[in-house]
């Protein structure tokens, strides 16, 4: 079984984002970018499936600007076999919407015929949490979202999902789309020899046109603003003083 893993290049999760003063967006020039943390978990899970003999090949895909090839090289260094880069944008500030990404991925799925697509549950930049579900819809496949455990058994997979109130276990027919949550695994670090080897692994370049997809956004961004900032607080010197403050504010 071939496993397809979509990965996204996003602002590093530790960076405090800056909103541009003119409201045109978040400043991404000269900011550290990395692989979306959820996608690292998806890559890790795909590689573990290969190590167990369940998966035969792991193909990483990224859609966006040319620099996303660095993200793909990271996936290759972790253990993916080859990569596909879909050049859909020239400007790092243009985020391709989940619907367009899902349509491109559906085109890749038709060419590659994977038995499983493993995605992150959401990208930490647009916080949409939609691409995996949209891809499953377009393919008419089953979906298992927010997965913390995945067991592939022949034509079926058993997935434990993180839901409000606890965990839910479901069984899905394969092929399926599984989106991974934080607690699925601990992604490995790429070793230096593997980083060197990854440079020689195949990386194919495509365009959205190759899949007949129009990436024009459906949602026009009118403006991007800073959230309302909070008023500076006060520090108590003792528990008694804190109790007085809470009582004074009428919150207890």
């Amino acid at each position: 079984m071939k496993v397809l893993v979509p990965v996204k290049r996003v602002i590093d999760y530790n960076v405090k984002v800056r909103v541009r003063a003119d409201g045109s967006g978040v400043d991404l020039a000269n900011v550290k970018m990395s692989m979306n943390p959820f996608d690292e978990i998806a890559v890790e899970e795909a590689i573990r499936l290969k190590e167990k003999g369940t998966a035969t090949e792991v193909v990483a895909v990224s859609i966006g600007v040319r620099q996303a090839q660095e993200t793909l090289r990271t996936a290759l260094a972790m253990g993916a076999d080859r990569a596909i880069l879909v050049l859909a944008s020239e400007d790092v500030h243009q985020d391709i919407e989940p619907l367009a990404v899902a349509k491109i991925l559906a085109g890749i799925v038709k060419e590659e015929s994977p038995g499983l697509v493993l995605c992150g549950k959401q990208a930490i930049d647009n916080d949409m949490n939609a691409t995996g579900q949209m891809l499953a819809a377009l393919l008419g496949w089953a979906q298992a979202t927010f997965a913390s455990e995945l067991k592939v058994e022949g034509e079926e997979a058993t997935v434990t999902r993180e839901v409000d109130g606890g965990l839910q276990a479901i069984k899905v027919k394969m092929p399926a789309v599984v989106t991974v949550d934080l607690r699925m695994n601990e992604p490995r670090y790429a070793s230096l020899p593997n980083i060197m080897k990854a440079k020689k692994k195949p990386l194919e370049e495509k365009t959205p046109g190759d899949y007949g997809v129009d990436v024009t956004p459906r949602l026009r961004v009118v403006k991007t603003t800073e959230p309302a900032s909070r008023k500076a607080g006060v520090m108590a010197k003792s528990v008694d003083e804190l109790v007085d403050m809470l009582k004074g504010a009428g919150v207890v």
Binding site: I11, K16, V17, V19, V26, I124, D125, N126, D127, R218, L219, R220, V221, V222, K223, T224, T225, E226, P227
Partner: peptide
């Protein structure tokens, strides 16, 4: 809607 872990608020118009 909030984006970037709530560090920015985006206003979007849908044509759908």
């Amino acid at each position: 809607r909030p984006i970037y872990a709530g560090n920015a608020i985006q206003t979007v118009t849908s044509s759908d």
